[in-house]
Every structure is written in structure tokens, then in C-alpha cells.
């Protein structure tokens, strides 16, 4: 019984570490959009549909414009795994399937966070992700419900 309790405490401790690192990881970047996007809180499922390029319009009918960093960029990998629960290769495969069967478009790849900020600010309907240090008042931050 004692051993059982001890292992329970271990599990608790380990999971609390996981939670803490998760919070820290979530802090250093944000999901961002152009200010004309009226959504503020979105579900993970909705976010996944957007980045899988299956959704074409926001709820008010305007086009969704998705921006991503290159496949091998660290922030892209972190965002894909943490927010979408997908690996970068899975995203690339589903985008390629859409594009080369003609059934959908791929997101626009930007080369740096500076370019991401610039494109998000200047493209109505845009969505992307940015390190928190780049976030300013000219863009919106989206939260996951």
C-alpha cells in the first residue's frame, strides 16, 4: 500500500513538471491574426481545421489566409506538436495532397518571424504564430478554448 502511494506521488510530481513546462512553452509564442478577424477564442479542433487548410472562410465569410514558418523551423515544429498535435511532416503531406489533387491551397511560407509579423499586420483575414516578443498592438492574439 505504501509503495502504491509512493508511486502515486511520483506520478503526481512528474505530471506537475509536465504542466509547468507546458505553461512555459505556451508562454513564449502566441497564435496571432489580423485585427479584422472577429474570432477571439477558438477551439483546438477549429485551429487544426484552419492549419490543415480544410476551412476556407472565417465565420463572417471572409477568406482565411494562413501563414507558416518553414517546415524545419523550430517554432513551426513546436507550434504543430503543441497546438495542433501534428508533426510537421503530417501537415506538409496533407497540404501536398490538397495542392496536387487541385482540391485546396497550401499556406504561405514566410522565412522569418519579422516577415510573419509584417504579413499578419498587412493581410486581412490572416492567421499565424509569433514569439511573444514580436507581438504588438497592431495584431490580435487568439486564445484556445
Amino acid at each position: 500500500m505504501f509503495i502504491f502511494n509512493k508511486s502515486n506521488i511520483c506520478v503526481l510530481l512528474i505530471s506537475s513538471f509536465l504542466v509547468i513546462t507546458d505553461v512555459m512553452a505556451n508562454d513564449h509564442y502566441q497564435i496571432v491574426s489580423h485585427p479584422n478577424v472577429i474570432e477571439t477564442d477558438i477551439t483546438r479542433n477549429y485551429l487544426r481545421a484552419i492549419f490543415s487548410m480544410r476551412l476556407r472562410t472565417w465565420q463572417n465569410g471572409t477568406s482565411i489566409r494562413v501563414f507558416v514558418l518553414p517546415d524545419d523551423h523550430k517554432l513551426h515544429a513546436v507550434f504543430s506538436k503543441e497546438k495542433l498535435n501534428l508533426f510537421p511532416y503530417q501537415l506538409r503531406q496533407s497540404w501536398d495532397r490538397l495542392v496536387f489533387s487541385g482540391t485546396g491551397q497550401a499556406p504561405t511560407t514566410v522565412s522569418s518571424s519579422e516577415e510573419m509579423l509584417d504579413r499578419i499586420m498587412n493581410t486581412p483575414g490572416s492567421i499565424g504564430y509569433l514569439e511573444t516578443t514580436y507581438v504588438n498592438d497592431n495584431i490580435h492574439v487568439l486564445h484556445i478554448k
Binding site: 476556407r56 495542392v99 487541385g102 485546396g104 491551397q105
Partner: peptide, 10 residues
Amino acid sequence: LNAIYRPLPK
């Protein structure tokens, strides 16, 4: 060679 054009959102 492939072209995809979305003149309207739908």
C-alpha cells in the same frame, strides 16, 4: 505545372 485560383472564398 499546377494552378489553383480562388476568385471567391467559396
